[in-house]
Design a protein around this nucleic acid. Structure first.
Length: 466
DNA sequence: TGAAATGTTGGGGCG
DNA sequence: ACGCCCCAACATTTC
């Protein structure tokens, strides 16, 4: 008689704690753990270079953790449906479990796959079930009284505060019984083969330690050392005031439930100011995923249709400015520092993300989609929902977006949030000798005032069309 | 999770 | 002593 085997399909939940699909699978006699590299499932948004580097490291770490528990991670490359079907057949599996994702393309794929499996293995032959693990609240649990989705953050946040309590954290299992190896189902690739070939990703290893155990360590370090000053330090790119959890959250090396619970072990929404301020940021992440769920076109199209009429410059016209922006060679210190931090580390402080995004879209009049695509390829925390939300917010085209006339002045932003100039000097050696008073002044050929007037004039055009 | 323009107030210099 | 002006400093409005 064959063993009662369950398959756990890992996707963006590369952890062993607080993992509903894995926990459910442990009710079976044996567990097959699988990851499938399948760019087609990602549609228009296959992983960028930095994400790919992170993923390769993280999968290798997950495999080690599984091996320490008597199991292993099988990594395949190819069509998800056919890999899973072959595994089901080979193991005569009784169940397939996975944790849900909310991006349009994989979500559509998963729905089709689920139907396909339920049809193919009708009756009780195969149990297929997906779980909530990526978000604190399902999008369909967070509707207004009229049953339409929220478009403004503050009411969404109030609803969240009023209705959320943390479920208990699911512990990481000590042992995960393996199924016997099956002929002909050899993993097609080693996780290392997922790593990108771009040489610049090599330096990422000097800054980041991907993987579930490091995620746990980073969370503890932040809660112990960073959280109590979060509110005052979080806007300071010259200090280590942020949590640095975003890449771990993207790949699910941490569950967001674990994060919020670590801030307040009672499981309630915290009431201490710094913790509230941090949890609010976590709920912004929630809101971003929520918006993408209800408005799947927003990675490429503005949420507010009037922005389709916006008079962006043409690609020919802005090509050089875009290249300079990517390189961190605009002549605006705060912008250049941010873009170079991005290239060097695969990450940029959020305050600076807003500054460089405002500069690209408003001062340079380059479409926000160009910036979003570049971030997608270079950020280790590249996340379709968060990235889309961030860019549309800055451009003024998104939900609850910054009003169109809100043009950041990179000099003033620098003086406010990098008062000594330490951040600029760190990333821009050419400014090393400039005083705190001078360090944020742009190069002579840049006229911030005129650029601002240009942005206001451009926005005025679509305002009159409304 | 803005910046700049414009308005108001109040202290000090000075005739 | 008083009114006038100047201009920071702060508040409000506008983009």
């Amino acid at each position: 008689m064959s063993q009662d085997t369950a398959i756990v399909w890992f996707r963006r939940d590369l952890r062993l704690s607080d993992h509903p699909a894995l926990t459910r699978a442990l009710n079976h006699e044996a567990v097959v753990c699988v990851y499938i590299d399948d760019p087609k499932r990602e549609g228009e948004w296959p992983l960028g270079q930095a994400s790919r580097w992170w993923l390769a490291q993280s999968l290798a770490t997950l495999d080690q953790s599984l091996q320490a528990r008597g199991n292993r991670l099988l990594v395949y490359s190819g069509d998800s449906t056919s890999v899973l079907t072959q595994l089901i057949e080979a193991h005569q599996a009784r169940a397939v479990y996975w944790n849900r994702v909310y991006e349009p393309s994989p979500r559509e794929y998963d729905a089709t796959l689920k139907d396909h499996l339920k049809t193919k293995y009708a009756g009780d032959a195969l149990h297929v079930e997906s779980f909530k693990a990526q978000l604190l609240k399902e999008p369909w649990e967070m509707l207004k009284k009229d049953h339409t989705p929220y478009l403004v953050f503050t009411p969404f946040w109030r609803h969240f505060q009023a209705t959320w309590t943390a479920p208990l954290r699911l512990p990481a299992p000590d042992r995960i019984p393996a199924a016997p190896e099956v002929e002909g189902m050899v993993p097609t690739i080693d996780s290392a083969q997922l790593a990108p070939t771009h040489p610049w990703t090599e330096q990422l290893a000097q800054v980041w330690s991907p993987g579930w155990p490091h995620a746990q360590a980073q969370l503890s370090a932040f809660v112990d050392q960073g959280l109590s000053q979060y509110e005052s330090a979080r806007n300071r790119p010259d200090q280590a005031g942020t949590s640095s959890l975003s890449p771990y959250l993207h790949f699910g090396e941490l569950s967001v439930g674990e994060v919020i619970r670590a801030c307040d072990p009672s499981g309630e929404v915290p009431d201490e100011d710094n913790a509230v301020s941090f949890v609010r940021e976590i709920v912004w992440r929630e809101f971003s995923h929520y918006l993408l769920y209800y408005f799947p076109h927003i990675p490429s199209q503005p949420l507010k249709p009037v922005f389709n009429q916006f008079p962006w410059r043409s690609a020919d016209e802005y090509a050089q400015d875009l290249a300079d922006w990517k390189k961190g060679d605009t002549g605006v210190p705060m912008v250049d520092a941010g873009m170079r931090q991005l290239t060097a580390t695969g990450w940029m402080h959020n305050r600076v993300r807003m500054v460089v995004a405002s500069y690209l879209t408003k001062n340079l009049l380059i479409p926000w989609q160009e910036g979003a695509r570049h971030f997608w390829d270079t950020l280790v925390d590249a996340d379709l929902a968060n990235n889309t939300q961030g860019w549309q917010w800055t451009a003024g085209s998104g939900a609850d977006a910054s009003p169109y006339f809100r043009v950041f002045n990179p000099t003033l932003q620098g003086e406010k949030f990098d008062p000594t100039g330490a951040y600029v000097r760190r990333w821009c050696p050419e400014h090393a000798d400039r005083s705190a008073k001078q360090v944020h002044q742009p190069a002579d050929h840049i006229d911030l005032k005129a650029q601002r007037q240009g942005a206001l004039a451009a926005y005025a055009q679509i305002k009159k069309d409304r």
